[in-house]
Design a protein around this nucleic acid. Structure first.
Lengths: 192, 192
DNA sequence: TATAGTTTAGAATGATCGGTATAGACTATC
DNA sequence: GATAGTCTATACCGATCATTCTAAACTATA
């Protein structure tokens, strides 16, 4: 019998994710993906089927990372602090990325009409989960007396989501760190 | 002597704007632009120089329209109402567009790294002007006693801008009308 | 060592891209 | 009607795109 598969598919998807994240679906060429993953043309098609299919795998990986991060924040068991930490990490990540890639999911959301239903569904679901996380944080915070109970949890969660979207979009090159932090601070003040 | 130029350049730019707005710079092909403007290939290159140059003209036209709209709102001479009307019109425009094109300027902002300095500058300036408009509205409203003077005008203007970005981005296919209106309502409540 | 399956590099394919060039139809002036 | 300049249609160019294919190099088993 011959040997086993020799390259790490997960690592390849991770690398492909970086390429798609940086360039977007259209602008990322197969050659870019070959270079980024270090995998040969033939192997790439054999392992992943094609560009579209690889993109979905990359987006799913990004989505899994997002899910893990939200779970970590929720495990803090301190809703107000979780929201605060969430915003700080978003600003920090946005600023730290010299390539100004923004958020892969929101980038895709703005380009949503160019994608099929599978992609659309992943994005819609991801955004909904962020919103639900924020709402849960607010509601638990209210139950504990950490957050004003006069506040409309559902509507405020949407506002916070809006702030996140804005930080990610404007952080791609329009706003500098100070302005992004200002938005984040305003977001935190919303739940004071 | 020969005749004068026969097609309407402004109308052509308007039509090209629609094409770029819908498809984005990369995905809009010259063939799309020929079809969209109804102008022949040769004439298009002769009149506008090329794709990049036509894109800039289209973006400038969009920017001029935006400027005119803000001026109209400011002429209401009722800052609080101006902000409110601004948000209502954004939601209305977003929902009314069956093609879910979003905002041409924000679409370009998210794609900013693919563009040159001229485009970057138009977008940055446009965003700044919206922010300045919001801030002016708040400050004038405060001076008139229509808006709480305890509010930080600069920071609140950024929050409102964030809401606008979010409505425009999420309105491209992730959120439906009710959710977008909810964000707008939250924005209005911010200045209550 | 022979074999089977995976790797690699790269050629080939057909389509489309932005941009240029050409040739004829058209129209206002002379 | 001749002329000059702008229009249209279309052919062409080199480049790049996603994808498929070929053929040789490699490696673990038999």
């Amino acid at each position: 019998m011959p040997w086993e598969k020799s390259f790490d598919e997960d690592l390849a998807v991770e690398n492909a994710m970086q390429v798609f994240w940086k360039k977007g679906f259209d602008s990322a060429s197969i050659s870019d993906l070959i270079e980024g993953t270090g995998i040969n043309r033939g192997s790439l098609y054999n392992a992943f089927g094609g560009k579209q299919s690889l993109f979905v795998k990359a987006l799913l990986k990004y989505d899994a990372d997002r899910q893990a991060m939200l779970a970590r924040l929720e495990a803090l068991d301190d809703p107000k602090k979780a929201i605060s930490a969430f915003f700080d990490s978003i600003v920090a990540n946005t600023v730290a990325d010299e390539q100004h890639k923004g958020c892969f999911m929101f980038n895709t959301a703005l380009d949503i009409s160019a994608h099929d239903n599978e992609v659309r569904q992943i994005v819609t679901n991801g955004v909904s989960e962020i919103e639900a996380f924020l709402r849960r944080c607010i509601e638990v915070g209210q139950a504990r007396g950490d957050i004003r109970s006069s506040m409309d949890a559902k509507a405020t969660a949407k506002s916070l989501l809006a702030m996140i979207v804005a930080i990610r979009v404007l952080g791609r090159g329009v706003f500098a760190e100070a302005a992004l932090q200002e938005i984040a601070d305003q977001a935190k003040r919303l739940i004071e």
